[in-house]
Design a protein around this nucleic acid. Structure first.
Length: 479
RNA sequence: GGUCUCGUAGUAUAACGGUUAGUACAUCGGGUUUUCAUCCCGACAACGCGGGUUCGACUCCCGCCGAGAUCACCA
């Protein structure tokens, strides 16, 4: 049997880390089994529709490397893939329910319904609309909502993540199928669509678990086979125990792109939040995820979102790309993350900088803060020099003479490269009798005025003879 | 309140009913010629509580407690 999964967001805004997992897992499952992933846009709520949200969703998925086999852009045999364009289909199915006596038009006003609800609240009994069914429902026509006619009974079903679940008749109610504006509710539309599109595995957040019996009742009334149901636990906000949502400041997935998070790291982190393959592997490529993913090993409790681990993983991925694909591949990823003053620098030079700094990056955007002194002379800050933990023991006159000794020694260097610089620095250490902490800190700060920088010989090598000596001279005369 | 779900260190997680309860992030210490980082070594730190079943329970059962989800003409 071909496995068909779907991701069905509603275009009400961006996709954030709290809900993107319900795209990742269906994707992994589909790819693992040579199945299909369908992207369906659930835009039946006209009031909440946000212009451009569909594009944002598509963009997010593409960035993460999630491609779909049917849906917007790519099309497919089961379209349209926007629910707003499928009204006729829902109405056709709705009529079947009316004919079989399992749906009725409900002219009751929302105000009246609120009264019923309040009545129950006051009596402290559960509100069930089926206890208030209108006696003689009119013919269904535009402008009147259509309700399902529930038949209270027990249901039990298997959820691939949550296990066997049983519920009593008290959870079944007459839910709205078609709203008065003629659009279907999610409750009805997704059932029709999943069936028409041949979905075999339905993955969605646990928030739908409570409504599942009502969905089961509709499948039954329509005499439809249902897909396997897979409820995904929530991702919890860093603080508190609530599910992560936009209100908790959940950032959009693509915002992380701007922060210099690699899509590989994002996918890796999110996939492994609430799922593991039982081994101690932490870093997975997309291909590895596809290979080892399994529904059975999805955690059934909520997982807390922890940005620190994402950052760690991103650092791992930055190094991995450098190690496996080389400097050019990593460099391509960094475009757009360099400091303003690097805009006139050549690619070759920036690659050199990147090759000595990449292993201290947590995000690509760290480049902006960490590399500025490679592209223009830093502001001389004598205080930073004299207050340095290692240098404050030395008199300023001593710093000056140390600098001058270093300058003259370095000036005589025949070939300015990392190896020669390293041996010259070693010689300087011997001849001055200073500790590395003193001599190296002095030169390092004089040349960068940054809180930290790569190994000294590498830094000098990349800066070049001219720039290095010029900066050292400038500092020597400023002391 | 009704219904359903969940409960291993701060976090993410591992563990045929038998282990000194493993791993990773974080934190703290140490090492690699300065700094920051990488890398390496080490430390801290957990089975929510109470009953059963069993020779033996993190694991199975029951109760409690705690947390969450849901009860819309939103999805």
């Amino acid at each position: 049997m071909e496995i068909i999964t779907r991701f069905a967001p509603s275009p009400t805004g961006y996709i954030h880390i709290g809900n993107v997992r319900s795209a990742i897992y269906p994707y992994l499952l589909a790819r693992q089994n040579n199945g299909k992933l369908i992207l369906r846009i659930e835009d039946t709520d006209r009031a909440r529709y946000v212009e451009g949200a569909t594009e944002l969703i598509e963009d997010t998925l593409k960035w993460l490397g999630i491609d779909w086999d049917e849906g917007p852009i790519v099309g497919g045999p089961n379209g349209p893939y926007f629910q707003s364009e499928r009204k006729d289909i829902y109405h056709t199915w709705a009529r079947k329910l009316i004919e079989s006596g399992r749906a009725y038009a409900d002219p009751t006003s929302p105000e009246k319904i609120d009264e019923y609800r309040k009545e129950c609240n006051d009596k402290k009994i559960p509100f069930l609309y089926r206890n208030y069914r209108p006696e003689n429902p009119p013919e269904w026509q535009p402008g009147i909502p259509l309700r399902f006619k529930a038949e209270p009974k027990e249901y039990s079903w298997h959820d691939e993540v949550m296990g066997d679940i049983q519920t009593g008749p008290e959870v079944l109610d007459d839910i709205i199928l078609i709203k008065k504006d003629g659009y279907p509710t999610y409750n009805f539309a997704h059932i029709v669509d999943d069936y028409e599109m041949g979905v075999t595995h339905l993955m969605r957040g646990v928030e739908y678990l409570s409504s599942t019996p009502n969905y089961l009742a509709i499948y039954e009334a329509l005499n439809l086979d249902r897909p396997k149901i897979i409820s995904l636990p929530h991702i919890l906000a860093p603080n508190g125990n609530k599910k992560l949502g936009k209100r908790d400041g959940a950032k959009s997935v693509t915002e992380y792109r701007e922060d210099g998070i690699l899509p590989e790291a994002m996918l890796n982190y999110l996939a492994c939040l609430g799922w593991n393959d039982g081994t101690e592997q932490e870093i997975y490529t997309k291909e590895e995820l596809i290979k080892s993913f399994s529904i059975e090993r999805i955690q059934n409790s909520g997982a807390r979102y922890d940005e620190t681990k994402l950052l760690w993983m991103n650092g791992q991925w930055i190094r991995r790309i450098f190690d496996e694909q080389g400097i050019d591949a990593l460099y391509e990823r960094t475009l757009g993350f360099w400091p303003e003053n690097a805009k006139d620098a050549t690619d070759e030079y920036k690659k050199k900088v990147l090759s000595i700094i990449y292993d201290r990056l947590k995000t690509l955007s760290d480049l902006r803060e960490m590399t500025a002194y490679f592209f223009s002379d830093p502001k001389i800050d004598i205080d930073m020099l004299v207050n340095n933990k290692f240098l404050k023991k030395l008199a300023e006159s001593e710093l000056e003479s140390l600098l001058k000794t270093s300058i003259s020694k370095l000036s005589n260097l025949k070939t300015w490269d990392a190896d020669n610089l390293q041996s010259t620095l070693n010689e300087l250490l011997k001849s001055t009798g200073k500790k590395p902490a003193e001599l190296f800190s002095l030169i390092r700060i004089a040349v960068s005025f940054a809180p930290f920088s790569p190994a000294l010989h590498l830094t000098l090598d990349v800066l070049g003879r001219e720039v290095s000596l010029a900066r050292l001279n400038a500092v020597a005369s400023a002391i």
